[in-house]
């Protein structure tokens, strides 16, 4: 292991901005995709069976 302490780990040898900037954005983007996918499916399931004919007439 390359780290003596938590501070050393977080400092990433002086590259903290670049390393954590990559990891945090990747984690947030992927988590956001999952949240949006779950929400989309939940909404569709809630609407399933509810007079879908009506939405067709409106379109």
């Amino acid at each position: 292991m390359s780290w003596g302490s938590l501070d050393e780990f977080l400092a990433m040898g002086g590259y903290a901005t670049y390393v954590w900037g990559s990891y945090i954005v990747s984690a947030v983007v992927l988590a956001m995709e999952v949240v949006l996918l779950k929400r989309r499916h939940r909404t569709l399931r809630a609407g399933a069976g509810r007079s879908s004919q009506q939405t067709d007439n409106l379109a």
Partner: peptide, 20 residues
């Protein structure tokens, strides 16, 4: 996950989706 949503959207008038 996304293909399941797409299926529901496109097949929304099918009986099996209404039965869900």
């Amino acid at each position: 996950m996304r293909v399941r949503s797409i299926i529901l959207e496109r097949e929304r008038n099918a009986q099996w989706v209404r039965d869900l």
